[in-house]
Design a protein around this nucleic acid. Structure first.
Lengths: 251, 251
DNA sequence: CGTTACCTTGAATCTCCTCAATACACGTGG
DNA sequence: CCACGTGTATTGAGGAGATTCAAGGTAACG
């Protein structure tokens, strides 16, 4: 019996992974790359609106987002929903299930997405033999922690204008790092109700503040097209600190 | 020259670490314990009110909190402050500096504290030779992420009564796991302004809502003495989900 | 052409903030 | 010992900010 082809047609082998081509992402050593090609068990495609992981659920896989956008959220029993973060290409999804056997938040696709599938069972050999990759996993968890800290400070302390400015600026900058911004323009696949659930405001109030923020002329955002016009000014309104620099790892 | 005694008088050797004696904390293997005794470079005592780590700072150490309480916070340029989490015995402090060479939040002692000092330089050998401990570090980072997610949902979605109930319940339960609760009583070294900065309310409003919550009779909290009277009822008000169970690691 | 999803606007109400004043416990110096 | 500051908790009043309810508008899609 011939060995099954590791990467069937349509599945990108890791050495051709689109994330690797991006600026600012760490390069694998040859050994790490070989391991990752072994680690990756396939790809998952999901349509916009699909729930990829549910709070409380376990699951045999870890994912890296290869293309598209997702958001992470938590719901209270009565339906109130808090968006806790967004995910762009290169982001790791589902680490919590690997650590606690239960997700502490849910994950939903904002656009059609493709995910790199990494079976949880192999995370142990990763820790055993590739301390560099193990360190990267920790790094990614710490980065998530840092982002949540910023959002917590935003929802807890920033006023309405600052909040919206902060989120839009953050999304724009992250899109930039994921290579999605062309000529100052991105497709932001976010509805105003997502924004409202992110900043802890009602939809109506979010809309009104957004109107006001638009009048500053820092950006244009209509029909999912976001155009940045004055990033520095928007950062000033957001009272945002400098974004994290340097290379970042991914799996 | 005789080898310097590894644990000078007054410093607790890891095999006598008070955290190890607590229920619900993972036990080290003999090899791990030996490594940790090597890893630990000393202890740090700090008075209440001391800033242990500052946002943006680097630092050569990681810490485990051995006794006392700390809180973590972030400030905006104009002084607004968001408390992002509290730390109790057994909690890891300063991981961000080890990952990013810069803390993304500050850490301050609420009480006199003692910290186990772990030099960052040895985190690499830890990852190289003790994958179990490396996994634990990741676990602790993921736990912090989970806690931040809960607090973000609290500040973003819960109303005033729910917010305060949630935080008090969380602190009580964590104190319990750290062995600080005796007969339903803990010393909560928290002032109302800490609570206010945690939930994103003004001090005045926090006080008024706290009055109202006291009248439910779920607890008594005066002069830093917190007495739980009806945890289930408080959990009901908080709209809290079940706390995380199972053994947890520590360093 | 009707349905659905999303965005927009106005009005009334309630939540939360700021300002201001008081009260109490504690420690310090006179 | 008391007088005084400091830090913390409490309370009231008036105004800014956010919510809810309700209505309309637009674009996409069958």
């Amino acid at each position: 019996m011939p060995p099954k082809p590791k990467f069937p047609p349509g599945v990108t082998p890791c050495d051709k992974c689109p994330i690797r081509k991006l600026e600012g992402f760490r390069r694998f050593t040859p050994e790490e790359l070989a391991f990752m090609m072994e680690f990756k068990s396939g790809e998952l495609a999901a349509e916009a609106g699909t729930t990829i992981l549910s709070e409380g659920s376990d699951g045999p896989h870890l994912y890296t987002l290869l293309s598209g956008w997702i958001f992470k959220y938590k719901t209270l029993e009565d339906g109130r929903r808090q968006v806790t973060n967004f995910g762009l290409p290169g982001d790791l999804i589902g680490l919590q299930a690997s650590m606690f056997d239960a997700m502490t938040h849910s994950v939903e696709a904002l656009t059609d997405v493709t995910l790199c599938v990494l079976p949880r069972a192999k995370i142990w050999p990763l820790y055993k033999n590739f301390e560099g990759l193990a360190f990267d996993v920790t790094w990614l968890a710490a980065r998530e922690e840092a982002m949540l800290t910023e959002y917590l400070a935003t929802v807890g302390q920033r006023n309405s204008m600052e909040r919206i400015a902060f989120v839009l600026l953050d999304l724009f900058r992250r899109a930039q790092r994921s290579g999605l911004v062309k000529k100052g323009e991105v497709t932001l696949p976010i509805a105003q109700h997502h924004l409202a659930d992110t900043i802890g405001f009602s939809l109506v109030h979010t809309n009104k503040v957004l109107q006001k923020l638009r009048r500053t002329g820092c950006f244009n955002w209509t029909n999912s097209k976001f155009v940045m016009r004055d990033e520095a000014k928007l950062a000033g309104i957001a009272m945002a600190s400098e974004p994290m620099e340097g290379v970042r790892p991914f799996l």
